[in-house]
Design a protein around this nucleic acid. Structure first.
Lengths: 198, 198
DNA sequence: CCAAAAGCGTAATGTTCGTTACGGTTGCCC
DNA sequence: GGGCAACCGTAACGAACATTACGCTTTTGG
């Protein structure tokens, strides 16, 4: 299979994995159901991903790369730091509470080894972190925020932005936030960040 | 079996369930492993709890009742509302990020039906909510906080207190917070709540 | 155009699990 | 103290699953 086709096929398989995962939960997602959904064979799944863990690790790392890409695109904006935060926030919220992220977090919660969770965290928050710190530092140098520790300021921002939304999503008690909800919540986070860090 | 003995036996069985759950994760927790750990028989487990879901539902509701009890005890304190918040916060954080709560949240995340999550949320946050609102309203009447919507103020407090700690715990990326960490985080939440709601 | 490799559909294998069943034992009630 | 219900330990049963195996077709590289 040519490299191009294979890449397409992988995307199809991973899309199928998400489809089953979102429909049946991690417990109800078997390799055979993914294969059937993707019209692929078990053999291919195992040859390409090694085992079930490997397939989900692949989902996680690819998803994290996409998140990072989206956020970096937002960073290219020319506006001042605070308005970057204003447009970064809804996007980040979208990526963290979307169906894919929720499905992956559920998988990580169900994973007895904890490796999926480690991968999510390492490639997720720890990939977003430098970008976010960069924006906060820019806001400080523009005189819009005052803080000593960027790490702490970032934690505060993330607490205000995300709060317990994600855990409520993961245990199935919170529907996916609408666009307007995400935007008002992100605006609230920036507003309160200014209240606190002046 | 006398009622008294039976109650003791139930506690033993549920303790065994937590032990296996915390050690092996939800996926690795079978009814038979719980029975063996508790030196009970499968028959008893099924007679008492109906099925696996029933057992975990029982864990969730009992845990929620204990949480509520702990918090109500804190409420009896005579101090002003803000210092009640100061002692309520660490306790709540402890209860939400402790091993038991984490294990139950993982189980809820893995549960395909979503019923466990619904039970956790209904008996958890929605049981804590009235108590917390009561404290916040008292703080307002004492002139220490200013807000219109108690629901919104509570959401803000919980975001500041819990943030994304719980989800990070659940995916295994965050160790259980120490006492001093919980206390300083709860203090931070109160401090910033005052920064925002003045 | 042809061999070799890759992929598909299906089935086999070995294990684990939820749930049920059963004979032996224990403790309770009268 | 005797009968009875509950409980224990163990095993049995059917289903589902991860993983492997195997013919068959398609694609690829030369």
């Amino acid at each position: 299979m040519r490299q191009e086709n294979r890449s397409i096929r992988q995307q199809q398989i991973e899309a199928a994995a998400y489809a089953v995962l979102e429909a049946k939960g991690y417990g109800g997602t078997s390799m055979q159901s993914i294969a059937k959904q993707a019209r692929a064979s078990n053999e291919t799944l195992y040859k390409w991903y090694g085992d079930k863990q490997g397939l989900f690790q692949a989902l996680v790392t690819r998803n994290a790369a996409e998140v990072k890409g989206h956020l970096e695109a937002k960073l290219e904006t020319d506006h001042d730091a605070l308005s970057i935060l204003g447009s970064l926030g809804p996007k980040l919220l979208d990526l963290l509470t979307g169906d894919r992220a929720v499905a992956l977090n559920r998988a990580a919660a169900a994973d007895p080894t904890g490796e999926l969770g480690a991968t999510i965290s390492a490639s997720g928050r720890e990939a977003v972190s430098p970008l976010l710190k960069q924006v906060l530092l820019r806001a400080r140098s523009e005189g819009r925020l005052a803080f000593d520790d960027p790490e702490e300021a970032m934690g505060l921002y993330l607490d205000l932005l995300i709060g317990d939304l994600q855990i409520r999503r993961v245990i199935g008690r919170q529907p996916q936030p609408t666009r307007s909800f995400r935007e008002s919540r992100a605006a609230r986070a920036v507003r309160h960040l200014q209240d606190i860090l002046t």
